[in-house]
């Protein structure tokens, strides 16, 4: 397996960042592994980690009286979690591994501190997270339209 420093520059999320910024961010990161049914984080828990999935699948779930409902699924090369970036830094959903999962886990406190110290790094991170948020918001809006079940068929 590649080291974190080797892996990050190839990942679309980190595309366009220079080597020194990648090195700076990699200093906040460790490789982690989860088994099926392990939780990466729980709803209402402190959003202290940001994940990049290297391998496997993670389902974002919300518990309900009828059982967990999957709201989204992240897989290879997806990023998981943006609540670490915005106060009150609290997870909105559960994230559960549904297969063997390898990921890069970034310490959110470390990322926030480096962003505060160097606004250019903070802006670069914010741009990238905003892009992920935009795509997921657009997707969620279209899903809300229930296009497959509506009369548009």
């Amino acid at each position: 397996m590649q080291t974190i420093e080797q892996y990050l520059p190839q990942h679309p999320f980190f595309g366009g960042l220079d080597a020194s910024t990648i090195e700076l961010l990699a200093g906040c990161a460790v490789n982690v592994h989860f088994h099926p049914q392990d939780y990466l984080f729980h709803e209402s828990g402190p959003a202290d980690t940001f994940y990049v999935v290297r391998r496997g699948r993670v389902s974002l779930e919300v518990s309900s009286p009828a059982g967990p409902r999957v709201v989204d699924v992240a897989q290879e090369d997806d990023v998981v979690g943006w609540s670490w970036l915005v106060p009150p830094y609290r997870w909105m959903f559960d994230a559960k591994a549904t297969s063997e999962v390898s990921a890069v886990a970034f310490d959110a406190t470390c990322l926030r501190a480096k962003s505060e110290a160097d606004p250019a790094v903070g802006y670069a991170l914010l741009q990238r997270v905003a892009q992920v948020m935009l795509h997921r918001l657009q997707s969620a809006r279209i899903r809300l339209m229930d296009v497959y079940g509506g009369n548009d068929d």
Binding site: R57, S59, E61, G67, P68, R69, V70, V71, D72, V73, Q75, T98, S139, I142, R143, D146, Y148
Partner: peptide, 13 residues
């Protein structure tokens, strides 16, 4: 669009 707990595939658009 809407995955129940038994679904192990993708959820999303």
């Amino acid at each position: 669009d809407n995955g129940q707990h038994a679904w192990r595939g993708r959820v999303g658009l």
